[in-house]
């Protein structure tokens, strides 16, 4: 019998994986037990980490890829996709995670960058990548390198939504501007944004990013998640928010439902009741410039 030819790692297969996550919540977990709670709550994927961003922030020092034992433990515990973080520009951490069969890699500013000039050439990998961005230029540079999914950077581990809102509004506003520009203005706009011209032209013609765009960095309540959906996010990453809250099970479930039903405000009121105290938030201006994770990446 003739065997059909399978093409793995194509752009469509990698971006398609992120398309399937839309409208969902991706949760940071540090062990199998948390991964199961996340899956039970209806998470569409988990991000396996050694420490959540707020603990990374507290611990200081160099933050690296998680111990593969933790990633493997999480992969065994759940049937939903498992993501993991590699340092910016760390080719080998990314290859290790790919070899382990991780479903998605986050080239993440939450970890200490391994390269202060270059990001990974992500199109060379079979596994898809998600990258953070604060504006359209940054998003399109990452897409130019082969990222299959974009997320706002926000300010991770703060429980403060203000930076994620800033980044999402910035990107949406810049997309609207590019769509309405005349074509002969695009090259100069590409120069201003530091964005690859071809991808800017793509946005001008299609009206949207070529990949899914999630919110991340500072989502701490169901209302925060719903807010990001209102601003045009395709879905939500919740890092420290869930397992730093008082009642993680209930909290996780409420965030999942708030993300799906973000336009139903009576329901959001119900979902926000009695879910315990969310994580303690950090005021962004109190964080020293050199400690802001969103400044990492180029």
């Amino acid at each position: 019998m003739m065997s059909e030819i399978r093409q793995v790692g194509t752009e469509r297969v990698k971006r398609g994986m992120a398309e399937m996550q839309k409208g969902g919540v991706i949760m940071d977990v540090v062990n199998a037990e948390q991964a199961k709670i996340a899956e039970q709550a209806g998470a569409v994927a988990v991000m396996a980490l050694e420490r959540v961003p707020s603990d990374i922030r507290a611990a200081g020092g160099v933050a690296r890829m998680a111990d593969p034992t933790i990633v493997e433990e999480v992969m065994k515990a759940v049937t939903i996709p498992v993501m993991a973080k590699a340092r910016i520009g760390h080719i080998v951490e990314a290859r290790i995670l790919e070899a382990m069969g991780v479903d998605y890699i986050d080239e993440s500013e939450v970890l200490t960058p391994a390269d202060e000039v270059f990001h990974l050439e992500k199109s060379q990998f079979t596994v898809p990548f998600v990258c953070g961005a604060r504006n359209l230029g940054e998003a399109l540079r990452r897409i130019g390198e082969g990222a299959s999914m974009i997320r706002t950077k926000g300010e991770p581990g703060t429980g403060n939504i203000v930076e994620a809102v800033r980044h999402m509004r910035m990107m949406q506003g810049q997309i609207r501007k590019v769509v309405n520009m005349s074509r002969d203005e695009l090259m100069t706009e590409a120069k201003e944004l530091g964005a690859p011209y071809e991808w800017l032209l793509h946005i001008h013609e299609t009206g949207k990013l070529p990949v899914v765009n999630f919110a991340a960095g500072g989502v701490a309540t169901p209302a925060d998640a719903a807010l990001m959906m209102h601003l045009g996010s395709d879905g939500v990453f919740v890092g420290s928010g869930i397992f730093k809250s008082e009642k993680p099970e209930k909290f996780a479930k409420a965030i999942v439902e708030a993300t799906t039903h973000y336009e139903d405000f009576a329901l959001l009121a119900e979902l926000s009741k009695d879910i315990g105290t969310p994580m303690t938030g950090l005021e962004i201006s109190k964080i020293k410039a050199e400690d802001r994770m969103q400044e990492r990446g180029w």
Binding site: E4, Q7, T10, D103, T126
Partner: peptide
């Protein structure tokens, strides 16, 4: 997840009865 994890995800041309041949089918996990 019968075809494997994401890195085994693939696209392939498929014949589908009543639909036709050479349908590019995308299989993701």
């Amino acid at each position: 997840n019968a075809f494997g994890r994401q890195k085994e995800s693939f696209e392939a041309d498929l014949s589908i009865e009543g639909v036709g041949d050479n349908f590019t089918a995308v299989f993701i996990r």
